[in-house]
Amino acid sequence: MLVLVVIGAFLIYVNDDYDANNQALEAMKSDDKVQVTGDDPLYFYPIDRTENQTGIIFYPGGKVEYESYAPLMRQIAEEGYATFLLDVPFGLAVFDINAAEKIMAANPDISEWYVAGHSLGGSMAAIYAEGANEQLSGLILLAAYSTADLSGTDLNVLSIYGSEDGVLNTESVQENRSLLPDNHKEIIIEGGNHAQFGNYGEQAGDGDATVSTEEQQKLTVEAITDLLAE
């Protein structure tokens, strides 16, 4: 009986997630700039990708519907970078930390790879990066921190979070900063919060953003593309 209760509680927990809003669903449509295909991963392919051979594999935040990150992925793709948005089991990247492997193997035309993620997804991307650092060029953390020791790697690491984030444990960010390479970059978006890296509405415990979702994502894309262009 106890096992059934635990299973039932788990199913309720994993099914009580944050759903993608209409703006996210609109971003999943192809146009003359970006071709959107697949479902796992959801693939955003820039139509005008001439010399760029860089790809980004994105791990979604915990219990956040992965389509919620479509607007962010699309904006990066519009800058010429192929992006792959993972659909992880139960909405929890911890159940498929090595998901990036199959993406990289299936796309040999891409020569430079970054893994990225939001919140729990960022932490899981960092764990993957620890074991695959020789196959990767870098790691992008959105409202996340690494518990894996990447300090001795050559990875280009970018950490971005909002000043009004009420979900991210900023003490853990500070405590784990030494696990990142010395030359890592950290950007705090003034007025940004936790949820606005995606398009799924308000998140429990989060702070009130003083910038719009569009502005927070615009600044995020600018920081990411600056990193990739180095």
Rank of each mutant, 00 (worst) to 15 (best):
M1Y: 06
L2S: 12
V3T: 09
L4M: 05
V5D: 00
A9V: 15
L11Y: 12
L11E: 09
L11S: 12
D16Q: 05
D17E: 01
E26A: 14
D31R: 01
V36H: 10
T37F: 02
G38V: 03
G38Q: 07
D39W: 10
D39P: 03
D40I: 03
D40N: 15
P41H: 11
L42A: 13
L42V: 13
P46R: 03
I47K: 14
I47M: 13
D48F: 01
R49D: 15
Q53H: 14
T54A: 11
G55I: 12
I57V: 15
F58A: 11
Y59R: 14
E65P: 02
E67M: 07
E67G: 05
E67N: 08
E67R: 15
P71F: 14
L72C: 07
L72F: 12
R74I: 10
R74C: 08
E79F: 02
G80D: 05
G80L: 05
Y81G: 00
A82V: 11
T83A: 11
T83H: 02
T83G: 07
F84E: 00
F84Q: 12
F84S: 09
L86T: 09
L86W: 13
D87N: 15
V88N: 08
F90E: 08
L92D: 09
V94M: 12
D96F: 04
I97K: 12
A99G: 08
I103W: 08
A105G: 00
N107W: 05
I110Q: 01
I110W: 02
E112T: 11
V115Y: 05
G117F: 01
S119L: 02
S119Y: 04
L120V: 04
G122C: 01
M124E: 11
M124N: 01
A125D: 05
E130W: 10
E130P: 12
G131W: 13
G131Y: 13
L136F: 04
G138A: 04
I140F: 08
I140Y: 06
L142Y: 10
A144R: 13
T147V: 10
G152A: 06
T153Q: 06
D154W: 04
N156K: 15
L158H: 10
L158T: 04
S159Q: 15
I160M: 12
D165F: 08
V167L: 08
N169I: 05
T170W: 00
S172Y: 11
S172W: 08
S172G: 01
V173L: 15
Q174V: 15
E175G: 01
E175K: 14
N176Q: 14
N176V: 06
R177K: 14
L180P: 11
N183I: 04
H184Q: 02
K185I: 12
I187G: 02
I189M: 14
A195F: 02
G198P: 03
G198V: 03
G201Y: 00
E202P: 00
G205S: 10
G207W: 14
G207S: 09
S212T: 15
T213I: 09
E214Y: 00
E214M: 02
E215C: 05
Q216K: 01
Q216R: 10
Q217L: 08
K218W: 04
L219C: 05
L219P: 02
T220N: 07
I224A: 04
I224L: 13
I224G: 07
D226C: 01
E230I: 14
